[in-house]
Amino acid sequence: MLGPFVGVLFDGFAYGMLLFLLSVGLSVTLGMMNFVNLAHCAFAMLGGYVTVTLMRDFQWPFFATLPLAFLSAAATAVVFERALYRRLYRASELDQVLLTIGIAFISVAVAAYLYGTVQQPVELPSYLRGSWTLLGVNFGIYRVFLVVTALVIALVLGLMLEFTRFGGTIRAAVDNQRMARGLGIDVDRSFAVTFALGSGLAGLGGALAIEIVGLDPAFAFHYLVYVLIVVSVGGLGSIGGSFAAASLIGFSDVAGKYYVPELGAFLIYLVMLALLMWRPAGLFGKR
């Protein structure tokens, strides 16, 4: 009885860590600029396809592709930010929604054109396959790796935000954009950097996600919903909030599908709506 539960708990947490990587960037950029970027998961998808391509066509080892997944998503994000997004920071949220949905549509079409609509396989190195058994519970090695990676990244992000100058500007901008600008902080520039970093993390998340949830062009929209749920439940601009919300959502989703499969995704939407109505600013949000 307890064995499967611990297993589900662990799988849910691993899935949550994936959601954390996918969503933390969006949470921080939203907190800074209130820019509604519905194309966030398109950047994640890009990271996934970069990994798939490098491994399949260039025989790169899995690990070597990960930095490139990060960099390509970050670089693409910079281009989009400079060319399109920055013109809409002060525009209505409708314009932001339309523009970024449009970009997401385009990304889906391009992915389908280049790779077809089939799921992309990823061949993990042998040492990441299989599982360890501890006290009768199976721990997938890849999931352990995922959890460790996400924890390290969360820690680094947290420390960076707390102790570096750049982190200080971000905290100030999230806290009170008006005041930050008044203090002479170049919010637009720190936003551009944050945006690249956040999109890069999404790209990395996209690459790491293939083994768990697969990769096809629908990714850009399907996981967008989960990411938005994490962001709005966790509260904008809060790394800790994203972490907690991602763990919570990851666990409820896995547990829901395991214990009450007939409800499907219904449960997760219901949980989200209830949470939002109870605390509109999210569980950990201040605003």
């Binding site: 209130n34 929604v97 709005s232 219904f266 939407y269 939002l276 509109p280």
Partner: peptide
């Protein structure tokens, strides 16, 4: 009527998905 911005977008989106899933099930 109580919400605006991202929260409103999320709530309308979530409500739509919820009904879709409900009809599906």
């Amino acid at each position: 009527a109580r919400f605006r911005h991202l929260t409103l977008i999320m709530i309308t989106l979530g409500f739509g998905l919820l009904l879709h899933e409900l009809a599906n099930k």
